[in-house]
């Protein structure tokens, strides 16, 4: 019988290594949220693997008392794919930054999403290169002044969600770096989801890009500026829970309950499980309100499942059980001694 999974607390996933992020960095929040999520998931500690690339965010595995690899810049999705294909029993997590995943690792990022291997990717989006001390990244905004764009950035940014959905992501969630409770819950859902799940955390870098998300995430505006979506629930937001989304032609619009005859019933209900990503794309693109929560969670066959099924099929039909069967099959001939 399988031994029951031990009752863990978040402390079981922390280790004795000194955490070296800048004080006040959202990376601490993400670390703690992951450590809190894991005990809830019910996975054994020895079965958990964190693979990261390079960046401030990618130091993450060093601080987890699980298996882990701090690898090379941008390649974590490919390494993690190998881990998972080698041993599908493992709970495999990818830790990556906006530069790591969408600049140098862009190719691996889109392909891992396309393949739908059962991995969890946490994307620390701080819209800057933290570790190399403040150059613009593929998510930095046009006009943003950084160390490598002193007169303002001229390269238009990616929206990670849009890119991910375009690459056929089956699971995409977005959450502010200062919402630990929701974040923990999203990590739990992401791990439970069968397939590649991508969680974008809007992570404040206090040193090189401080406040870049405040207009959405600051406690004073959060409820008015963010729409936290939940599957099956109407898309309502606002301090007074009186605003919501309606469809006007091919566009999403904000409507106020009680105005123009709008009632709760007129609001769109969030369907994260819909196969067609059109609505998810619209939600991802919306700037007001900024949509957070699990935007897409579409159940689909995973790569491992397809591979397993094929292997079983081939095994059943094949007469080759051992390498010798292959080596001594077909066109062989004997040479006799004199």
């Amino acid at each position: 019988m399988e031994p029951a999974v031990k009752e863990y607390t978040y402390k079981d996933f922390a280790n004795d290594q000194e955490v070296r992020w800048c004080p006040g960095c959202d990376d601490y929040v993400i670390l703690r949220s992951v450590q809190k999520a894991l005990p809830e998931i019910g996975v054994k500690k020895e079965d958990v693997v964190f693979i990261s690339g390079i960046g401030c965010s990618s130091r993450f595995p060093y601080y987890m008392d699980t298996y882990g690899m701090h690898s090379i810049h941008g390649r974590a999705p490919a390494i993690a794919s190998g881990v998972k294909l080698a041993n599908p029993q493992l709970s495999v997590w990818v830790i990556t930054g906006d530069g790591d995943s969408m600049a140098i690792g862009g190719n691996h990022f889109i392909h891992v999403l396309r393949r739908n291997i059962n991995l969890n990717i946490i994307l620390f989006n701080n819209e800057i290169y933290g570790l190399t001390k403040g150059q613009f990244s593929p998510t930095s905004r046009v006009g943003q002044k950084t160390k490598s764009s002193p007169y303002g950035n001229t390269q238009p940014p990616f929206s990670p969600g849009e890119l991910a959905l375009g690459a056929q992501a089956r699971f995409f969630a977005r959450i502010g770096g200062n919402s630990p409770k929701e974040m923990t819950d999203i990590f739990i859902q992401a791990e439970k989801f069968k397939g590649t799940s991508l969680v974008e955390v809007l992570q404040n870098c206090v040193i090189f890009n401080d406040g870049c998300f405040v207009k959405y995430t600051d406690k004073s505006v959060r409820e008015d500026k963010q729409l936290f979506v939940e599957h099956g629930k109407p898309m309502v937001f606002g301090k007074n829970r009186d605003k919501g989304l309606v469809l006007n032609g091919l566009k999403l619009e904000v409507a106020t309950i009680g105005e123009n005859g709008i009632t709760q019933e007129d609001l769109l209900v969030h369907d994260a499980r819909e196969k067609d990503p059109t609505m998810h794309q619209m939600l991802v693109r919306l700037e007001y309100p900024l949509v957070t929560g699990i935007i897409r969670s579409f159940n689909d066959v995973t790569l491992e499942e397809m591979e397993d099924a094929l292997t079983a099929q081939v095994r059943e039909k094949s007469s080759f059980k051992k390498a010798d069967d292959l080596f001594f099959s077909g066109e062989i001939y004997e040479v006799k001694g004199e």
Binding site: A78, S81, V83
Partner: peptide, 19 residues
């Protein structure tokens, strides 16, 4: 595993070796 490029080819192998 046919990967998206040579880098992913070796990287996936490194992951598999780790596992």
């Amino acid at each position: 595993f046919q990967a998206e490029d040579e880098i992913a080819g070796i990287s996936s192998a490194i992951g598999a070796s780790f596992a």
